[in-house]
Design a protein around this nucleic acid. Structure first.
Lengths: 126, 126
DNA sequence: TAAAACCTTGGAGTGCACTCCAAGCAAGTA
DNA sequence: TACTTGCTTGGAGTGCACTCCAAGGTTTTA
């Protein structure tokens, strides 16, 4: 166990993650963050582990997962090992949704390509 | 010119497009629909052309384009031929954003895959 | 004709994901 | 020490994209 664990203030975490301080506090309030350490005076001191969690949460956000589902996932993590099946299920459902979403968007992209091509020529209608 | 153009009531359009009547009226109100024909008593009668437009708008929605940008696009169409460059630009910007979004999601999908794989084994941490 | 189903409007309400505020205490720098 | 910058909280506010409501007129079906 290292005695030199890095601790980050909220503004350091803001600039590292791109999340605002408001959002970071809000994440904690709604239960999307494991409890963050505090300094003797009560200020937040984030750890590298917190940063890792935030990075993972960022990936979940990117997938389009709702905040409610992310909170659900965080709860399952807090509840311990016996929730791994539920967690995997939640992640698998999310994965199915992401795959569907990507294929829809790829479809829409083709329409966009066609339309732009159309404009490059001259037969313009809409 | 055909004399047997099909005209759809709002509930027919609802079941064909999956958009609610509320949303269809709202689209018209905000200028996202070209003006829809009315029956002698004022009820909407949508044409096949309206359905085509709605299908295209649906594709734009799928790309994640904001309603404000879609309205902007609709305005450009109404303004006529001299706006084709602006329209193409708007579509090209949207295309760049969609491509970026798809690649972000593909990335996040890989993380999800890794995590699920992880759960399938036994080294479970978060 | 009578009932049921469908349509109209302007405006209010909803859910989501933040985003900001005020008042006050804490920490770092000259 | 004085000043500036940073941090705390609960709660209010924002922007987006719908979603619904009430009151009343229209159309279809039996």
């Amino acid at each position: 166990m290292s005695l030199t664990q890095t601790r980050y203030t909220i503004s350091e975490v803001e600039s590292r993650t791109g999340l605002t301080q408001h959002t970071l506090r809000w994440y904690e309030r709604i239960g999307l963050m494991p409890h963050v350490d505090r300094s003797h005076s009560g200020q937040r001191r984030f750890s590298d582990k917190d940063l890792d969690w935030l990075a993972f949460v960022g990936k979940l956000r990117t997938t389009g997962m709702s905040v409610a589902d992310m909170v659900r996932y965080a709860e399952l993590v807090r509840e311990g090992e016996h929730t791994v099946d539920q967690r995997r299920e939640l992640l698998e459902r999310t994965r199915r949704e992401v795959r569907a979403r990507i294929s829809e968007m790829t479809d829409a992209l083709a329409v966009l390509d066609y339309k732009i091509e159309h404009y490059a020529g001259k037969a313009v209608r809409q």
